[in-house]
Every structure is written in C-alpha cells, then in structure tokens.
Nucleic acid binder design. Structure first.
Length: 1013
RNA sequence: AAGCCUGUAGCCCAACGGAAGAGGCAAUAGUCUUAGAAACUAUUUAGUGUGAGUUCAAAUCUCACCGGGCUUACCA
C-alpha cells in the first residue's frame, strides 16, 4: 500500500490495478531517478568524444562543519542548468566537483571540536555530498578531487618543485629553468638578469665573481630568483592562530578567519614570486570575460603605478656651506614618486619608522625625541594604526638636498609612510597631496605653492592640469607633460631611474600549521634541497595532538623522527606546510585527468578540455584564489606543460543570498543597572510586544518612561503585569528562528519549545490574536537564526521545485534576500505542468493528436525565450517563461505529445527529475524497467522555428509627438511610404494634427509609429 | 574617503531606446469541502528614488543628489 508521500496531505489517487500514481509525487520520482542516474553512470564524461567540448566549473567548496544553507547551492544550480543545457545542445560537457579540504579553517575546526582534521574533513565531506545529492546535480563524481589526498597533493608538491626550480626571465617575459640562469651566471655574471630582490646586499656580479662565491652564497643568490623561494621577510603573524597569513587573509589588521590580531614579524618564510607575473596578470585581464568589478578588484590589488625613484644626498644641517658634510658618503635617501613633476614643491621628506636609515639620520639634538616617537609607534598595533588616524611624526634633524636647486629639505619620520611600499620614504609635496598637506599644517612646515591659483591654501590639490610655477626649468609647463621631462632629466643626471611599482607583494606560501601539504624540501646545512621527484608524495604524517612546535614552528616540528631521521645525518625536513590556496591553484586541471599517476594532468587531456569555459563562484575569491590560480596557470604554460595561460575564460559571480531575519521584542520593567549587574530577577514570565508596539515605544523615546508605560497600559488593558508596571522600562530586540515564523507571524507554540524551552512561559501582547515579528535583511548566518536548510525544502517540495525557485528569486549575479514563502508558486507551477499529462481523476490525459498553430506558437515562443535566457544566464526569466507556457497550454487545453515532449526537453536542465519522468512516460518506457536509452539527458534540444511565431500584421501604437493616441493594424512588411499613407488617412491622427503638416513620421518596424508635428 | 553595482505595485522581480507588466508571492472574492487546509477560478495594485539634460520617443543613455549593497581603504 502506498503511503501519502506528500506533506500536503491526501493528494494521491491510486488507480487500482495499474498502481499508477496520478498526482505529482516528487519524492518518489526524484529518488527513483537519482538512483537510476547513479546506477547507469549517466553523468560520466569521456575525454574522447567527437562532440565539441565545454567545461563548466564551480568553485569547489571547503567542506565546513556547518553544512549548506540555501545560499550555497545557488551557483551550483546555475552551473548545473548550464551544463545540462550545453549537453542537450550537443556538447561533451565536463562538470566536476571536489573538495578544497586542506587549510587553516579545517584545522581550526578540528582543534575546536577535538577531532583530527582528517576525520572531521571526511565527515564534513560526507554530509556535504549527501546534501548535494538531494538536489540532483549532474556532476561526474568519478572525477572528484580532494586536495588533502596524497594522490592529489603529490602533484601540488610536484608543481611547487617546478616553481622552486624556475626563475622568471624578464627578457623573455616567462618562467625558465633555474639551470639556464646558472649557465648565464657562469658565462657573464648577472648582467642580463638583475636580482629581483633589490634589498639583497649583492646587486651585481661578474662570471669570475660568481665562480668565486661559496656554494652557500651561490645557492643564496639563486634563491633570490626562484619563483618559489625562502626568505626572511615581514610577515603577517597571527599569534592566536600560530601562523603567518597572506595579505588577502588579513582584513583590517585582524585575521579574516576568527578576527584575531595580526602583527608584523620578521620570519623565515616561503614565498611565491607572483610579483614577477604582475604585468602579465594585468594584461591577461583583457583576454578574459570577467565582470568589470572583478577586473577592477584585481587591478587594484596588483596596484601598478609608474613614476621614478629619486635619490637624494643627505646632510646633517640645512646650511649649505657651514656644516654641509654628507652624513655618510654612501648613504642616500631614495624615494619613490609617481609625480616627479612636483620636485620643486617638495617641502619635507618622510620616512617610515622602520626605515633602515633612521639610525643614521638622527642628529644628537633630536635623539631623545625620535626615540620616544619610535617607542610610541612600536606600541601601536597594526590595527590601532589603521583604526585611528592621528597625525604623528618627528623631525630627525637631518636634511636631504634637492638635486635641482640645492634646497635643504628636512627629513621627518612618520607612521603614515609605510615601510612595505616603494622605498619606505616619500618626498612630501603639501600643495598637491592631502596627507602631506595635513602633516605640514600640523607641524607648521612652510608650504611651497607650485600650482598657482590651483592651490587655495585650504587643502591640497592633486591636479595634473596646472601650469607649474616656482619650478625652475619646468616653469610654465603643464604638469602632465613635466612628468616625462623630469624623469628624463633625472636619468640624465644619474640621480634616479624610471620605476614601476606594484602594491602587490610576493605571496607568503608557508603556514606554521599541520593540515596542509608538507614541503618536499630538506634543509642541509642551511640550504634547502628539494626531494627527488620520485619520492613524492611526501605524505603528511599522522599526529594525535596538534600543538605548535618550538620557536613559532608548526606542529610537524614536534615529530622528531619524521623531521630528522637518523639517515638524514642532521639535516631537517621543512616543517611548514603549504597554504590553502596551493591545492586550489591548479585543481581545474586535475579534473581533466583525475587518476593519472604519472602526471598532474596529461597534455592530451589539458589540450582536449582547454580552458574552463564557464567558472562560477563568489566574489570573495576575487584577489586570493583567482590571482594565484592565474599565476600557476601562466607558470605551467611557460614551462610548456599546458597550452594556455589563462585558466578561466568566463567568470560569473553569483550574488549572495541574504537572510531575512525575524525579531521578537521583549520588555522588562526594571532599571538597566540591575539587569547589567545580573541582580534583576524577573517576577513575571518573559513578556513580548509586537513590532509596531516596539516601534512606537522607540518613537516615544527612551527617556520618556512615563509616556511609554502609559502607552503600554492603553494597548494592553488586560495584561496584569503591564497594568501593574511602575518602574522603568527596558526593551530588547531578539533574533528569533525564521523557521518558527510563518511570514511575519510567530508560531507561539513552537516559540515556547524553542531553545529547549527557554521561553516556555512567554507571554505576548497580541494584535488580532497574532504576534507580528520585525523583519530585517542581514547576512545569512547561524548566529542570526535566519538560515534555511535546503534539505528541509527539498523534503517538503522536491529538488526540482527547489532548483527552480532558487533561480526564480532573481538574477544569479545579484544579491537578494531569501524568502521561503514564494516557493509555493514554483511548486504549483510544476503541479500544473503535471496536470497537462495526468488528471487526478481521469489518469493519463496526454494524447498524440496533431498540434494546432496556436499551440505550436506557444511552444516556439517558449523555445526561443528559454534558449536565449539560458544562454545569457537569465534563469529567473527562463523559469517565468515556463510558467507562461504552461499557463497558456492549460488555457488552450493542450495535452499533445507533439507540444509536450519538446517542452520537457527545454525544462530538463531546470527540473531534471520531473522532465525525465514524464519523458519516459511519453516514450512508454518507465525507468523501472531499466530502459536507459530513453533518458532525456541526451535528447536533442528543440529547434526554434520562426514560421510558427511569425505574424503577418501587427497592431501598432500610433503616437502624436510621443503620446500614444490610437492604434492601427498594419502589415508587417509595409514600407515607410505605405505606413505614412495609412497613418495620414486615419481620422484620429487627422484630428490630432489639427490641420498641421507632420514634420516627420517615425516608423519602427514591429514596434511603433510616431507622428512628429 | 574612493571605485563598482543597485533603486519599477505591499513584497520578489520583467521590460534595457519604442504602448511600464511577463511571471511569482501577498491581499480580496468565489468553486470544492462537515469544517479547516490544499487545489482551482477570478479580481485588485505602480508610472519606474529625486532633479536636470540628450532624443520624435527615456525605467532604459548623460550629469548631479538621496537611499541600499559590495570591494578597497594611508600605495606616495
């Protein structure tokens, strides 16, 4: 006996004898088809196909313990629809899914829950997978990747080694083997390959010098060139997480994950020399189809600027003749500026507190003051510096000499100049730069005006369009033009060079953590030696306890045996692990050839699948993941392992689904102090007022306690607690679980049970017997009790309804709030569709009659609309096109297979289960009997035919001077002249013309007619 | 503070130079039901945030302002 599957009660009629279910029983249908798809491996994709290829990729998830909420699958559904659509259109579609399982959050989660990351990750993946499966995605799970599996990270380690063994040849603008560099050094020193690290003590060397260097020095120099290198640097150190973080993992001076404080610290770290790729990462943006905002974010992150580095002589006094001795002959102050044209407006210099010349520049009389200032700066965390912007600084006592007019320029120290950017020193031009201006005003430094009336003395003006004044040899020149002139002059005089600068830093590539790829590196007397590639993967050893190692090292340092086995003779393994973005930088390639044990991905596979045609994911990866994976792709291209240097041809960012939070408003009759102290002991049950009462109370104002209480007494005459109230009143706004609110009406019974009965004794002030909650749109989050679980919705309405409703909410790229209420409408649509095939009482109603013109017109209108909308990612309007179609077919009482079958194929990408079911029924081949060849997945997408929708005439709106006055039915192929004749004969038009001659008659075919008088 | 996106019936959204409404939710009425729910049928609702401009014609293009979102925030 069949049970009632549907939550909406007695729905099913059972035809006795055939045991045929006449109502839309989505739960049974979806389960059956999902099993059938799985058993028949219908989503398995071959690398060998005569069809054209298409690659649709989702950003693979980090499997968090919290599970999915309705916001997560949005992008997956969109890509799934598109992948299915492309398959119907005859493409061999690669649409895989996997897990970004390594990384800090996984480890943090594991530690907090006392479970080993391998175990918790495994469990989270399992949960994740079961949630995904319910939605009916067409992933080829045989290609699943998991970044934490040795079979996968073997190749992450392998690519790292290739990076380690390569350098960026600036002449050929691509990565090349480090051996080539070595050969060049032996032949000609580093004349053709300047050291990328300009801070390095050795700048240039000849072949002879190179040969005389010790092995260690040679290795150290090579390290300055490697694309994956180890060096000391200022890193973002997060004490709470016990690790360094990449720049994009630090937000506002705290860690992106967890919000822990981050400080700058000098540590030995691995880096990726991504800065060498800065220009190509910028240029590549022109060849890809990303949104403008995405390109802009990446461009800003790379932060390319051009200008000059100018070197200034230093003096310990402002007087040219007297004590004009150079501070130290070799020391010069080098500043970076994008505006060399303002060189005569430089009124002071500012260097960062961390600048290496600070000690040299302090004169005796300023020593005490400077030291006090440095101490103050040190006491301030990164966070404080960012949060409160105070103008602070101190004069060093020293001066720089303007190379053009010899003017002595005082050198200051201030924290507004960052050590990490440019040279850590600036030339300050207060008339042109607002920060410099404020600094000058604050410390009473006289301001030189070089831009005449463009400067008003009130604020700086950063214009480039002023005519220069007080500027020696560039007087009278337009600023824009002077930039080039000054750079040339500087280079001529040998006091500076043209310079391009980037905000982007080399990417910190090591983490003092356990849950990541171990580095295939062994340290032998201070030199890192790569493991033989045959030894890969270097497996991550098991650890029971994940405590940080000594000296800020990661947990692996605690494993003595592993770090330095006896056979190593004192050498130690690298104990850092790679960051989360290592594995995700190349995963799109592994899907193409997931089981390859000899290569990360065969050239044959990567040539066949090529670039990802469509990549879908959130904006949050704009600068992290996307830049790193673009760099890795360029690198793999450079060394000839793949045939393209951009991974993603087209990128679509799905918008965020926001939560719609619900609030209840509690009131207390007590004073704030006693509540804060915890002394308050309610002598009555928790009391709640509805949203408009709360709003009214807010309107009255917190201070008007008397009025507020009087108001309450008036609206709740029967509430004894309120009537007895005398003391002060406090209101509290509390999030309430959206799942126990129907629209805005609180389900009081559920509320009393909520949170283990915390509000079991709650009392309410009701309006018409209802408690109305407040509503606010916020980020969807567990802590706000506004998350909605897809599992519940799939259970209640089915996967097809859920998929379509997610799409129906609005454009994929837009952020929008979730509102479960509307899902009923989509569900009704599917039921209505079902009724085109089956009648509740009569059973099968579809037939094989010949379709009428009107029916064919409805079908072909829909084909055109759905095809267009799907192609341009307008899924919301696509869903609505289906609704219109079904409404119209219902009105026409059309139950014809000739119409319904193509309609099902159109619908299959959106609602695959119901489409399969009905398609199988039309084909008389129920899947229960295992007739796999009738699957709708490989049906041919219906062909739109113009002839069915073609009209011969149209009723045109006729406007006089833009205002519609009448309508005229005119043949579609009418010429301008014919139209003019018809229009001018029309009585309404004649009336409105009032005898005047029309100036012009505008006739837009198939649109409208406008008569201009 | 800047850049990008966005603002259409009570709500979510269509229309993207050519008659503002396709669709859904909600609301109201009816059919069916012992009743409720569900289902079905029908009906109602805006002149496009504000102000200017371009055009024969503007929700659509331009500019300014106001509100919402996202991103980056001392980058010399």
């Amino acid at each position: 006996m069949l049970k009632n599957y549907c939550s909406t009660k007695n729905q099913f009629k059972i035809i006795t004898g055939g045991l045929e279910i006449m109502e839309y029983n989505f739960r049974e249908i979806e389960k059956r088809w999902q099993e059938w798809w799985k058993a028949n491996k219908v989503y398995k994709v071959s690398n060998d196909s005569p069809k054209p290829k298409y690659y649709v990729l989702d950003m693979f998830p980090y499997p968090s313990g919290a599970g999915l909420h309705v916001g997560h699958p949005l992008g997956y559904i969109a890509s799934d629809i598109y992948a299915r659509f492309k398959r119907l259109k005859g493409f061999n579609v690669l649409h895989p899914m996997g897990y970004d399982a390594f990384g800090l959050p996984a480890e943090q989660y594991a530690i907090e829950h006392g479970i080993h990351p391998a175990v918790s990750t495994e469990a989270n993946i399992k949960n994740f997978r079961s949630q995904l499966d319910k939605i009916g995605f067409c992933y080829d799970w045989d290609r699943e990747v998991n970044t934490s599996k040795p079979g996968y990270y073997k190749w992450t380690q392998w690519i790292f080694l290739q990076l380690f063994k390569s350098f960026y040849n600036r002449q050929t603008k691509k990565a090349e083997p480090i051996n080539k560099l070595l050969a060049a050094f032996e032949k000609e020193g580093n004349a053709s390959h300047p050291i990328p690290n300009t801070q390095y003590p050795i700048i240039s060397f000849t072949a002879e010098e190179w040969k005389k260097f010790t092995e260690a020095t040679q290795q150290d120099i090579l390290m300055q060139y490697r694309l994956a290198y180890c060096g000391y640097g200022e890193v973002n150190w997060c004490e709470a997480l016990g690790t360094v973080l990449a720049n994009d993992e630090v937000v506002n001076g705290v860690s992106e994950r967890g919000g822990h404080p981050v400080v700058k610290k000098k540590l030995r770290q691995w880096y990726l020399r991504i800065t060498e790729y800065a220009d190509r990462l910028l240029e590549g943006l022109e060849k890809v189809d990303f949104s403008e905002s995405m390109k802009e974010m990446q461009t800003n992150w790379i932060g390319k600027s051009s200008g000059a580095e100018i070197s200034f002589e230093l003096r310990a006094s402002s007087h040219e003749n007297k004590s004009s001795q150079l501070i130290a002959n070799s020391s010069r102050l080098i500043v970076y500026t994008t505006r060399p044209d303002t060189i005569f407006g430089v009124d002071f210099m500012v260097i960062a507190p961390e600048h290496e010349l600070v000690k040299e520049l302090i004169t005796d009389e300023h020593k005490a003051e400077v030291e006090k200032y440095l101490e103050y700066v040190n006491s301030r965390s990164e966070r404080e510096r960012m949060a409160e912007k105070k103008i602070t600084g101190v004069f060093t006592g020293s001066y720089a000499k303007n190379p053009f007019n010899g003017r002595a320029i005082p050198i200051w120290i201030s924290e507004y100049v960052l050590a990490g950017y440019g040279t850590g020193a600036i030339m300050a031009v207060p008339c042109g730069d607002q920060r410099d201006f404020l600094f000058a005003k604050h410390f009473n430094i006289p301001i030189t005006n070089i831009i005449g009336s463009h400067y008003n003395g009130e604020e700086a003006n950063p214009t480039k369009d002023a005519i220069l004044e007080n500027s020696d040899f560039i007087n009278g020149m337009l600023m824009k033009d002077a930039i080039e002139v000054v750079i040339k002059k500087i280079e001529e005089k040998g006091i500076g060079v043209r310079k391009v600068n980037y905000k982007m830093r080399d990417a910190a590539f090591s983490r003092q953590r356990y849950w990541g790829e171990p580095f295939p590196i062994v340290w032998k007397s201070g030199t890192p030696v790569p493991l033989d590639e045959k030894e890969l993967p270097l497996q991550l050893p098991h650890m029971d306890e994940l405590k940080p190692g000594p000296d800020g090292e990661g947990p692996l340092a605690n494993l003595g045996e592993w770090v330095s086995p006896p056979a190593f003779g004192g050498s130690r393994r690298e104990v850092n692990t790679m960051p989360g973005y290592a594995g995700s930088s190349w995963y799109f390639l592994r899907y193409m050839d997931p089981d390859n044990e000899k290569e990360f991905c065969s050239r044959k596979a990567s040539d066949y699948w090529g670039q990802v045609d469509l990549y879908i994911g959130g904006t949050e990866h704009a600068v992290g993941h996307l830049l790193y994976s673009r760099m890795w792709t360029k690198f793999l291209f450079d060394i000839g392992l793949i045939g393209y240097d951009e991974p993603y041809k087209r990128l679509v960012n799905q918008g965020m689904i926001q939560g719609s939070s619900r609030f209840v408003y509690r009131i207390f009759f007590a004073d704030t102090l006693s509540i804060l102290k915890g002394e308050f002991n309610s002598n009555h049950n928790p009391l709640f007022v509805p949203v408009n009462v709360y709003q009214k109370l807010t309107e009255i104002g917190v201070s008007n306690t008397k009025e507020r209480i009087e108001y309450l007494k008036k609206i709740a005459p029967n509430n004894s607690v309120i009537q007895a109230a005398t003391s002060s009143l406090i209101t509290a706004k509390l999030h309430v679980d959206v799942n126990i609110v129907d629209g805005v009406e609180l389900n009081i019974e559920e509320f009393r049970k909520w949170r283990n009965g915390e509000y079991a004794d709650a009392e309410f002030v009701l309006e018409d017997g209802k408690y109305i909650c407040g509503v606010e749109i916020e980020k969807m989050s567990k802590s706000k009790f506004n998350t909605v679980n897809p599992d519940d919705l799939v259970y209640k309405y089915g996967a097809d309804t859920f998929r379509m409703y997610e799409m129906f909410l609005g454009p994929v790229e837009m952020s929008k709030p979730w509102d479960t209420k509307g899902i009923e409408g989509v569900h009704r649509f599917l039921k209505k569709l079902w009724r085109l095939f089956y009648d509740e009482l009569k059973g099968k109603v579809w037939n094989e009659e010949k379709a009428t013109d009107a029916e064919l017109k409805v079908l072909h209108k829909t084909i055109r609309k759905v095809e267009e909308d799907t192609e341009r990612f307008s899924f919301n309007t696509g869903v609505s096109a289906f609704m219109i179609c079904v409404n119209e077919l219902t009105d026409l009482k059309c139950h014809k297979k000739e119409i319904l079958e193509p309609l099902l194929i159109l619908l299959a990408p959106y609602a695959p289960h119901i489409a399969e079911e009905l398609y199988a029924e039309l084909r008389k081949a129920p899947p229960k009997k295992g007739l796999g060849e009738v699957s709708i997945l490989d049906a041919a997408f219906p062909k739109f035919e113009e002839k069915y929708v073609k009209e011969t005439s149209k009723t045109y709106p006729v406007a006089i001077n833009g205002k519609t006055r009448t309508e005229l039915s005119i043949a579609l192929d009418a010429t301008q002249q014919q139209v003019e004749e018809i229009v001018l004969k029309d009585p309404t038009v004649i009336k409105w013309l009032e005898g005047k001659q029309p100036k012009k008659i505008i006739y837009v075919k198939n649109k409208m007619i406008n008569v201009v008088v």
